Amino acid sequence: MELTATTTVRKPSSEVYAFWRDLGNLPTFMAHLEEVRATGDRTSHWSASAPFGKNVEWDAEIIDEATGEKIAWRSTGNADVPNAGTVRFVPAPDGVSTEVHVVLTYDIPGGAVGKAVARYFGEEPHQQLDDDLRRLKQVLETGEVVRSDGAPWGKRARKEFPQRPAQPLSDSDLAKGAET
């Protein structure tokens, strides 16, 4: 499976690159990552949650890097989920922001059946990547992942409402609440 996503962060590319390159920062915005630990200058060990309460782990190596511009990696050895990816950090036309372009490729455990089951349980990979990049933007621009009062934990596999800006209840909503 190949996933692509892009976001624009209102920070200079050198700052966005440095944040991403410190691999220990990745779990602050990538919801499924439990830990990323550097094991060398270009190697790391990753641990992530997977559907059905499972955990997956793998080692990875950076295979191509241009400081401030690009990081490319691939899993090594017998990874639970073989994967590879590239992140590009491109100065945005406004001269202040950075466009973050992500391309991920990986083998989903269970193939097409695993993909269908994961989607059924709210683990749609394209949406996960979009959500991760939205959280990256929030962390870099505000210092935290912003959550509304209506969904303090964000979306979590169909158990909660999607995030949206907090709003006062309408008169009809108040009347419905009073009836119950």
Rank of each mutant, 00 (worst) to 15 (best):
G53I: 02
R164A: 15
L23P: 02
V146G: 01
E124F: 02
V103P: 00
R164F: 14
E65F: 04
A112C: 02
R134A: 15
G150I: 07
N83T: 06
T105H: 02
L3G: 03
P165I: 13
D130S: 12
T7C: 09
G110Y: 06
T180C: 04
T43C: 07
D41L: 09
G154L: 01
W46E: 07
V146E: 11
T67K: 15
V103Q: 14
R21T: 06
G150K: 08
A18T: 07
T7N: 03
D41E: 15
D131L: 11
P51E: 12
E35Q: 15
D149Q: 15
T7D: 09
R156D: 13
L26G: 00
I62E: 11
A72V: 03
I71Q: 10
P168L: 01
L129R: 00
A84C: 05
T39L: 12
V16Q: 06
E99Y: 02
R158T: 00
P27L: 07
G111P: 07
M30W: 12
F89C: 11
A92S: 14
G122N: 01
H32F: 05
L133P: 12
E141S: 10
G150C: 02
V100S: 05
G85W: 04
Q163F: 10
P109D: 01
K159D: 06
D171R: 06
E123V: 14
G40Y: 08
I62V: 15
M1Y: 06
D130N: 13
S148M: 02
A31Y: 13
H101Y: 13
K137C: 02
W153A: 02
L26S: 04
A151S: 15
K54P: 00
R158D: 07
L169N: 05
T67Q: 15
A79Y: 04
H45E: 15
P27Y: 00
A151Y: 03
S97V: 10
G53V: 02
V16L: 01
S170K: 00
G143A: 08
L136A: 01
L26E: 13
E35M: 13
S75F: 00
A116H: 01
E61N: 06
A5N: 11
A112G: 03
Y17S: 09
L33I: 09
V102G: 09
T105Y: 01
A92V: 08
L3P: 06
G114T: 09
I62G: 01
D59M: 07
N83Y: 03
G143T: 11
T142H: 14
E99H: 13
Q163K: 08
P93D: 15
A92F: 10
A116K: 09
R21E: 02
T43L: 09
S170L: 04
W58V: 10
R135F: 13
W20Q: 11
K115C: 05
S49Q: 12
V16K: 06
P109V: 08
P12S: 02
Y17C: 07
S44F: 14
E15R: 11
R42I: 08
F121E: 06
R147L: 12
